[in-house]
Design a binder for these strands. Structure first.
Lengths: 140, 140
DNA sequence: CTAGGAGCTAGAGCGTTGTCTAGGTCAAGT
DNA sequence: ACTTGACCTAGACAACGCTCTAGCTCCTAG
């Protein structure tokens, strides 16, 4: 039931350093319990919470915003609208990111296909215009 | 035909500081020309190249990698395979990012919908379990 | 003639997100 | 008894990607 920081590091993929750092930054919903000797004891709930933080982080939510969300949760019931606003904001942000990446991917894939032809044609490269940037801007 | 740094900043969205920074970092395919008085003169090609750099950056390519790509282009024809490898690597990276973001978006959207019900039900929030993290991990 | 604005270089500073070090405690194994 | 390994705190350091400052030169408009 109680997990050491090392165990939590192992299952979350965060380093023990990062775990302590996240705690200092106030990203844990409730203060981590301690053994008599001062060592941290994490619960499964803590791990679940951390997993959520990691999802937030990996989708580009700044630690600062995670902290604000955490604060709302820590304050308890009554601010669900605020949490919802925050989540919706991030939802839109992630959706926008996906859009942008898809657009970038199209561009990159286009460049890749041009180089593929180019390379497949072997020495064809030597036939291209010497001013490289021109051939390249033609490629993009 | 020749653009000042301010004009380029305006059309690329980069700051003049960032433009000089990029140049110092070797991200420009060819050295920017200068007026007699030392001021930079950019060509349309430079702007195109910068636009490509921005696409790379916004899709998560580190400046370092952009520099490597730039170096390849600067070296001229003959290394198309290397360029292709680099582009393919980034292509995969972007695709993976999109996947991850889509997964995150699903999770977030799920949380949002739970809070929406929650909020729509008005004071229903008060009916939920006081230990917030539990209700929340239930929500995720 | 002078003030403003844009540009220049070199280099310092900064926000974010960790990572690492120093110096120490504690428990278990040999 | 001693070593090893996990853990602790406080705080220094680092990578990345800019951003800003200081101190200067130009050009143009009033």
């Amino acid at each position: 039931m109680g997990l050491s920081i090392g165990q939590v590091a192992e299952r979350t993929g965060l380093s023990v350093h990062a775990l302590r750092f996240y705690e200092r930054e106030g990203l844990l919903a409730d203060p981590v319990r301690r053994e008599s000797n001062g060592r941290r004891v994490y619960s499964e709930d803590d791990v679940d919470w951390l997993a959520m933080c990691i999802k937030f982080r990996s989708s580009g939510m700044p630690l600062d915003t995670i902290r604000r969300y955490t604060d709302l949760v820590r304050q308890g019931p009554g601010n669900e609208q605020d949490r919802l606003d925050l989540l919706r904001g991030h939802q839109e942000y992630v959706a926008a990111q996906i859009e942008e990446l898809q657009e970038s991917l199209r561009v990159i894939t286009h460049k890749v296909s041009i180089y593929e032809e180019h390379v497949a044609a072997g020495t064809a490269s030597c036939l291209w215009a010497p001013p490289e940037e021109q051939s390249d801007s033609a490629a993009s």
